[in-house]
């Protein structure tokens, strides 16, 4: 291959892929740390997970295959968010502590089923959606490799 100045190396061209895998590892590690309240390495791993997410949106120099993998991850996140919102809507509707739930129940006694409390932990939801993003990205990446004879 002839010498061409200002040509980026394979490592430079595929840097975004590496960031996302690093972010995936961090986001998976983040969930148990959060659930068990481990605080030591939490900040660093949290930063890694955020970095992976940012790499999926700041794709200025990444190639369009990388963008298509990210787009699949984003689709998975929106789908998961839709399910989450629908579940919240359902809980809200049947929670007799809410005005609409109270009206639906036809009861004069306001007694919350407590389901809404599950949906108040925004940080946990964020971590789970980050994992879902990486799952969508990874699924597409794996699917594209089935039956391919990729050179290493």
């Amino acid at each position: 291959m002839p010498y061409r100045p200002y040509t980026s190396s394979e490592s430079q061209r595929s840097y975004a892929y590496k960031y996302v895998w690093f972010g995936a590892a961090c986001s998976v590690a983040l969930l148990p740390l959060y659930l068990f309240g481990v605080r030591g390495p939490y900040g660093l791993i949290f930063g890694g997970a955020v970095g992976g997410l940012l790499a999926s949106t700041l794709t200025g120099r990444a190639d369009d295959y990388f963008r298509s993998l990210c787009a699949n991850g984003h689709r998975w996140v929106v789908f998961a968010l839709s399910l989450y919102m629908f579940a919240g809507f359902t809980l809200y509707l049947f929670d007799v502590a809410t005005p609409s739930g109270h009206d639906l129940s036809g009861s004069s006694e306001a007694a919350s089923v407590g389901g809404m409390a599950l949906f108040f932990d925004g940080h946990l939801v964020g971590i789970i959606l980050t994992i879902v993003y990486h799952a969508g990205y990874g699924y597409q990446w794996l699917r594209d490799r089935v039956g391919s004879d990729e050179e290493t």
Binding site: S8, E10, R13, S14, Y17, Y65, E151
Partner: peptide, 24 residues
């Protein structure tokens, strides 16, 4: 090689592989 073609197109080797196999 896939890497050489990727270099000429200024994309990653993974992108070349995905295009070659018709996955992308």
């Amino acid at each position: 090689s896939q890497a050489e073609l990727a270099g000429r197109l200024d994309v990653s080797r993974q992108a070349v592989n995905a295009i070659e196999t018709g996955k992308h």
